[in-house]
Amino acid sequence: MEALTRIARAGIRVAELTAAEEKANSAAQMAGLAYGLAAIGPGVGIGIIFGKAIESMARQPESAGMVRTTMFLGVAFTEALALIGFVAFILLKFA
């Protein structure tokens, strides 16, 4: 009898997900897709930057230092787009 009242007091409640939680779930599922899309452009861009940098270094090895610095700056700017996508992914999925 004691046990039964305890269970009753525990009050097992079965509820369906609210609308807000369902929205959060779908947002979490879309997050992966969103990040995948955000990575396409910067991926191509960084490839082009490195390719061109290697080309110009091969053409003019004496200017390799300057090319490398500029290359890293370009990569940093391009990469920022992918990273903003990554942050958006974290926001959608975990916030």
């Binding site: 990469e79 920022a80 990273l83 903003i84 990554f86 942050v87 974290i90």
Partner: peptide, 9 residues
């Protein structure tokens, strides 16, 4: 964001 997201990733 660049520094933070790179290290977090």
């Amino acid at each position: 964001v660049r520094l933070f997201a790179n290290m977090l990733a």
